[in-house]
Nucleic acid binder design. Structure first.
Lengths: 95, 95, 95, 95
DNA sequence: CTGCCATTTTACCGGC
DNA sequence: GCCGGTAAAATGGCAG
């Protein structure tokens, strides 16, 4: 194999790693922002602990709804009622 | 207290919660992006597991460097030498 | 310190490790049993995939109920309404 | 098909689900026990993190040994030296 | 500083 | 037999 091949591969890897590191920095920055909002809320007399519970609850509610929808799809698929496209059912009927 | 006060307070809380939720969505989105980069790397023949180790170690290295720098600043401050410029180092060398 | 002390310590650690390993074996054995039940169900014409979904759903429902109860307690505590004993509220009222 | 058939099938499924749920409860209970042992170890001055590493490595060693044994059995089978029954061992002893 | 919670990592299970 | 996704474990971070 060629040294050039290695260099290209190494450079490709380096770029991927740097993309990841940049994204992780952004992610950490947003984490800081979230913490700041909680601090601000606390300074205005709200209880961050209760706020975290509320946020968590709302997130779980959303997940529960999404999962329920996914479950309905799963059952439909298991019953052969699933149509990937609007034409799907017609196509199946035509088959 | 007044009912109006309650309404304002509730609205203020609602806005804070919504800010947090929006930030958490962004954070989750970036998490997805990171996962995508790892997937892309894998599809190009790189091992994501190894890449994660590299990213983690580089992060640790960075932290170590940052801590060392912070320590140096602490010492400088304690010695009344706090200078952001190269002259500070010259002063230390002279000591 | 004495060599005896070391021996005792080593033996104590050995016993703890062995207790853990025995428990993990039991746990793995039960995992096998579960897998067997799914296999048996499959051989009787039931779909293990759907069964897993059902089991997961029922577990999540139970967790949701438990969390809701815990949440109610949290809110009560935040409102100073929590009483460890039936006498608790009377004591607070008397204070 | 008859409604009765459905009822029987549903009951059979229900029993299987309940068997699974009972086994999963046992499994979770043992998981709690394991956590308790780690806590107890910690309170006695041992480091749970290190203990987990030890347990993991011992498990890997055991797996390696088991695989080696399985390989030996495979070779024996290939050579017609495998005895599945007590009689087989007698035969081998007689050989 | 201790316990809890979120995130991350690992192991498992089913599908192709 | 690999690979993808999904559940369990473990680690790290944060509030109290």
């Amino acid at each position: 194999m060629s040294g050039v091949g290695h260099n290209i591969g190494h450079n490709e890897l380096r770029l991927l790693i740097e993309r990841i590191e940049r994204l992780e920095e952004e992610k950490a920055g947003i984490g800081e922002d979230i913490k700041d909002v909680y601090s601000e809320a606390k300074s205005r007399g709200f209880d961050p602990k209760i706020m975290r519970i509320i946020v968590r609850e709302r997130k779980m509610d959303k997940h529960a709804r999404d999962e329920r929808d996914a479950l309905i799809e799963t059952y439909k698929a298991a019953l052969g009622m699933l149509a990937d496209t609007p034409l799907g059912q017609a196509a199946m009927a035509a088959a």
